[in-house]
């Protein structure tokens, strides 16, 4: 068993690549991504799990990265918004967000998209009501909600 420690040198697996990163035990996965790995696509809105802007996939499941210690993410697969597109080809959810204008300022958008990708793969986008409920952990203060539903519906249909 590892010894208790305040400082860690971790290997984080993000978007298929391994990154060595030195963190404090206190460092959240969100801060590690943004400030240590400079993967700033994942956004900080509240740092308290209350807005969804920091949503990433952890072993394929959507989580809020602000409520996870970076040390606890070691050995798991983290997928961020930067890991969705293949080169210049947008992921279908990303393309649908652009097409349906499912954002304004764009700050909640990476979190919305990661949440949508998660919801689709979980099979929870069967109806508009279900999409609305499933996307309710991601606040959009610009109020793009109905466009977000249209985008998710569309992307789910294209993927399914």
């Amino acid at each position: 068993m590892p010894e208790p420690s305040q400082n860690f040198s971790l290997t984080l697996r993000v978007n298929g690549a391994e990154h060595r990163v030195a963190v404090d035990a206190r460092t959240t996965l969100l801060d590690a991504l943004r400030d240590r790995l400079h993967l700033t696509g994942t956004k900080k809105g509240c740092a308290l799990g209350q807005c969804g802007a920091c949503t990433v996939l952890l072993d394929g499941r959507r989580v809020v990265s602000c409520l996870m210690l970076a040390v606890m993410a070691e050995g798991r697969q983290v997928t961020t918004i930067e890991g969705l597109a293949r080169g210049d080809d947008l992921h279908p959810v990303q393309a649908a967000f652009v097409e349906h204008d499912a954002f304004q300022c764009g700050y909640c958008t990476p979190g919305q998209i990661m949440s949508a990708v998660g919801a689709i793969s979980e099979g929870r986008t069967g109806s508009d009501d279900e999409i609305r409920e499933q996307m309710s952990g991601n606040l959009c203060r610009c109020g793009a909600y109905t466009n977000i539903v249209a985008a998710v519906r569309d992307a789910a249909a294209r993927e399914g």
């Binding site: 799990g49 969804g52 952890l58 959507r62 989580v63 809020v64 409520l67 952990g137 991601n138």
Partner: peptide, 9 residues
Amino acid sequence: SASPMVRHM
């Protein structure tokens, strides 16, 4: 309870 993300954690 909470949101899908929180429920996964």
